[in-house]
Amino acid sequence: MGQTLSEPVIDKHSTTGGDERYLYGASAMQGWRISMEDAHTTLLKLGPNGESAFLLSTTATVARRRPILGEKAYSSGYYEDAIKSGFLSADAHLREKPEMTNDSSGCTAVGVLLTKDGTAYCGNAGDSRCIISSKGRAIALSTTTSPRTKLSSTASHRANNSSLPAEKQVVTAHPDVIKHTITADDEFIVVACDGIWDCMTNQQVAQFVHAKVVEGKKLDQICEDMMDRCLASESELGGVGCDNMTVVIVAILNGKTEEEWYAHVKNVAEETNMKSSPTLKKDYERNFEVSDLDIDADGTTSAIIKQALQSDEEEAAGVDIRADALEGNVAAAAAAAVAKKSEDN
């Protein structure tokens, strides 16, 4: 998780914007971490073809460099190829920086490109995530994979087999890209860092946005409320709710005015029983006792439980973990989850 402060920095840096196709709200908060590593970019007009782009990264270099726009594939309309080559180009740029030579931390990045013809291309490398809400149902636009969870650093490249192409490396900047055709049922897109997804599932994020619209909140306010909801009350909770947090919410107008869009999302919330905020993943009272299990001294199993509980499918499979284990005894919870899944199978 990294070092934490004695008190969280809860100042929010929020922005809003919009045009005839999209509205967006974005916000970032340092939280308990000793520095703010997240960076994001919101571009309603990306290039000559009228695309929009929303990018979030755990390094400002990637978020601000706009690597995709300069790719030949982009100007030719091959957006998936442009995203893949753009991520690799950003990685190469990082590795050329002298200050990155001995930096083994790496970074993650997720971005969604919205074309003028109504297609969304989402590229992701790491554990940030992107969803789209369609009639109240969260649809994943990105996949979280392990151990490919860091945009490659110089040290990571040395650890990999350099004779293999980027997409075959164990740790790689080569992104997974998901294509989605936007329909009249699609309401909004959420791009967020792992500080949010550690605490909320895809569907909980979608429900949270709907519930806040019912309360009369605007997109930037919803981003701020989501980060506050995920923020840990103290820093001794195993990292859950202690990370940097960034959220970008993009409203898909589909020909509606701003007022009509908010009214539409409110109606969806009422029709799908999402008028109230969800109980978050980190707050669940689980019925699987893990308090007597040993905790791995080096925490090597913590990644297992983190990956399992970030997945809606894994939760549906019956991985029952108490919230105190999730937040504190993460390694023990991982062992319990593995044992429980083995029993179920």
Rank of each mutant, 00 (worst) to 15 (best):
Met36His: 14
Met36Asn: 12
Asp38Val: 11
Thr41Ala: 14
Thr42Val: 14
Leu43Asp: 12
Leu43Ile: 07
Leu44Tyr: 12
Leu44Ala: 06
Leu44Glu: 11
Leu44Asp: 03
Leu44Trp: 07
Lys45Phe: 07
Lys45Arg: 12
Leu46Asn: 03
Leu46Glu: 09
Leu46Gln: 08
Leu46His: 08
Gly47Ala: 11
Pro48Asn: 11
Asn49Tyr: 12
Asn49Met: 13
Gly50Thr: 04
Ser52Thr: 11
Ala53Ser: 09
Ala53Pro: 00
Phe54Ile: 06
Phe54Asn: 03
Ser57Trp: 02
Thr58Met: 06
Thr58Gly: 15
Thr59Met: 07
Thr59Phe: 05
Ala60Ile: 11
Val62Cys: 07
Val62His: 03
Val62Trp: 03
Arg64Asp: 08
Arg65Ile: 07
Arg66Phe: 10
Pro67Ile: 05
Pro67Phe: 02
Pro67Ala: 05
Pro67Tyr: 09
Leu69Arg: 14
Gly70Met: 09
Gly70Tyr: 11
Glu71Trp: 02
Glu71Lys: 10
Lys72Ser: 14
Ala73Thr: 06
Tyr74Ile: 06
Tyr74Lys: 08
Ser75Ile: 09
Ser76Pro: 00
Tyr79Ile: 10
Glu80Val: 03
Glu80Leu: 04
Glu80Asp: 10
Ala82Thr: 06
Ala82Pro: 03
Ala82His: 05
Ile83Thr: 02
Ile83Ser: 02
Ile83His: 01
Gly86Lys: 02
Gly86Tyr: 01
Phe87Asn: 00
Phe87Pro: 00
Phe87Arg: 00
Phe87Met: 00
Phe87Lys: 00
Leu88Cys: 13
Leu88Lys: 06
Ser89Ile: 01
Ala90Val: 02
Ala90Trp: 02
Ala92Tyr: 10
Ala92Leu: 13
His93Arg: 07
Leu94Glu: 13
Arg95Leu: 13
Glu96Ala: 13
Glu96Phe: 06
Glu96Asn: 10
Lys97Gln: 15
Lys97His: 11
Pro98Glu: 10
Glu99Lys: 11
Met100Pro: 01
Thr101Cys: 06
Thr101Ile: 12
Asp103Thr: 04
Val110Ser: 10
Gly111Arg: 01
Gly111Glu: 09
Val112Glu: 03
Val112Lys: 02
Leu113His: 09
Leu114Val: 09
Leu114Met: 13
Leu114Ser: 05
Leu114Phe: 14
Leu114Cys: 12
Asp117Cys: 09
Asp117Ala: 11
Thr119Ile: 15
Thr119Asp: 04
Thr119Arg: 05
Ala120Arg: 03
Tyr121Pro: 01
Tyr121Ala: 01
Gly123Glu: 01
Asn124Trp: 01
Ala125Asn: 10
Ala125Pro: 00
Ala125Gly: 04
Gly126Pro: 06
Gly126Glu: 06
Asp127Arg: 08
Asp127Gly: 08
Asp127Lys: 08
Arg129Thr: 01
Arg129Phe: 09
Cys130Phe: 05
Ile131Leu: 15
Ile131Tyr: 04
